[in-house]
Write a protein that binds this DNA or RNA. Structure first.
Lengths: 240, 240
DNA sequence: CGACCACTTGATCATGCTCAACTAGCGTGG
DNA sequence: CCACGCTAGTTGAGCATGATCAAGTGGTCG
């Protein structure tokens, strides 16, 4: 396999910020014009290949980032190699854990992605200076907490079929290509990643996907592209 | 079964606050002397029996509370009755979800407990006024997020024995009665609650507890009291 | 003493795991 | 252009962990 690369696209500028899709996101939407210029001056736009590790578990946090494009997975691994994905983040989410020295999880690009990288010290200073930024990050933390707890219910109490349906529902909810009822989307995760997110094996994931296909709830256009003709039918598979 | 009751002990006063064990906790530790007096004036000390529901899933949040004594469990239930405990909170933790209308989970006293209840509007006003309180609640949210993600790893990837050992380790970590190596504690949860926390059945929980007992890792003094002679031996059971 | 409840233990079952073979897609090189 | 190998995914057979169903135990309270 190619080694996943990351490449600097440009030094950020306030000009770039103005047309940025994260301009009104969690971090940048909470900043004043002046702060935005300052942050932009010290930001880097990076392109990261799928599989590239953005933050390593146990490493020191020296930067934070906004996701500009693509999907980032948050992973925990055990000493013996067992792995659990504990969160998915989509553009324009913020990635990082302010004011904490060491990361307890790794962040890895699930798809090819672009991120906007902020230096640690600058962002932490701005959080201390800016009530609105603090409030905004607090709000994102609470949303992630709710999502984590919702997923705990999935991990602890749902069957394999319900788990797979839950994941498809989650990803479909972030897809743009939706008509009134039907939704089509790229599965941004491999079977192995889906398994690690759901606490299953790849074989079980594969079997449940074909089960959902045979029951007509999904169409597997190709290995990475799914169509859900009727979202309600999918939702029904989640809880019984 | 007796209906779980809750009973008002006293109207809070600044006098009570001064000797309160949550005085330096997440909420009260972030307030000025004046704010503390104001909050104390509008707070109620409530005694809640084990099993008493403090916040109902789907209900409107009209108050927040500090746990003064006892253990509170955060639960999610599915329409068909399947249930998952998504968090345990110990004194002097804060319970509630500021600025959110509807609770997505229920909070229930796992043991007899005492809580200090704040009116919603007052606390939300203080959060908006007080940077330090915002910061403090943000910090607790991040700690709970880490805990939730750690538990996702347990739910998704650990075996039944590892799950039970993880829970014992978690509760032991909050116990006071610890010598250099050995730890004794009250199990604040019933077997059914343990099962709901670990995504298992009560039978499996019971079997794994006797397994840990037979292997000498724990002593079951009585149904609700456990001794761990060697915490390291318990920790070894968690990851293999 | 008896009823009840929480828990334990046992026997059997089934969901999802393991191991293994097979298939499809895709890039590489002859 | 096709053969080849490699990777990712699918499918099948058998197995094991944990669930289910059922009986038994022990402590508590009236």
């Amino acid at each position: 396999m190619d080694v996943a690369r990351s490449e600097v696209l440009e030094i950020g500028t306030s000009v770039a910020c103005r047309s940025c899709q994260a301009r009104h996101g969690v971090v940048c939407g909470a900043l004043s014009a002046g702060q935005l210029i300052e942050l932009g001056r010290h930001s880097l736009r990076r392109k990261v290949d799928a599989g590239c590790e953005i933050i390593a578990q146990g490493s020191e946090n020296s930067f934070y980032s906004n996701i500009m494009r693509g999907v980032v997975k948050l992973c925990k691994v055990m000493p013996d190699g067992r792995q659990q994905i504990v969160g998915l983040q989509f553009a324009p989410d913020f990635v990082g854990r302010p004011f904490v020295r060491e990361s307890t999880l790794s962040a890895e690009a699930a798809t090819d992605a672009e991120i906007c990288v902020f230096p640690r010290n600058l962002l932490e200073r701005m959080i201390l200076e800016t009530r609105e930024l603090q409030r905004s990050l607090h709000a994102q933390a609470l949303i992630e907490l709710d999502a984590a707890r919702e997923w705990m219910l999935t991990l602890g109490r749902r069957t394999a079929e319900e788990k797979v349906a839950s994941l498809l529902h989650l990803i479909a909810a972030h897809a743009e290509t939706a008509t009134a009822t039907s939704t089509a989307f790229d599965l941004s995760l491999s079977r192995a990643e889906i398994a690690d997110f759901l606490g299953l094996t790849i074989e079980t994931v594969s079997r449940q996907l074909t089960r959902l296909r045979k029951s007509g709830v999904i169409r597997i256009e190709n290995i990475r592209h799914i169509t859900v003709p009727d979202m309600d039918a999918l939702a029904k598979k989640i809880s019984g």
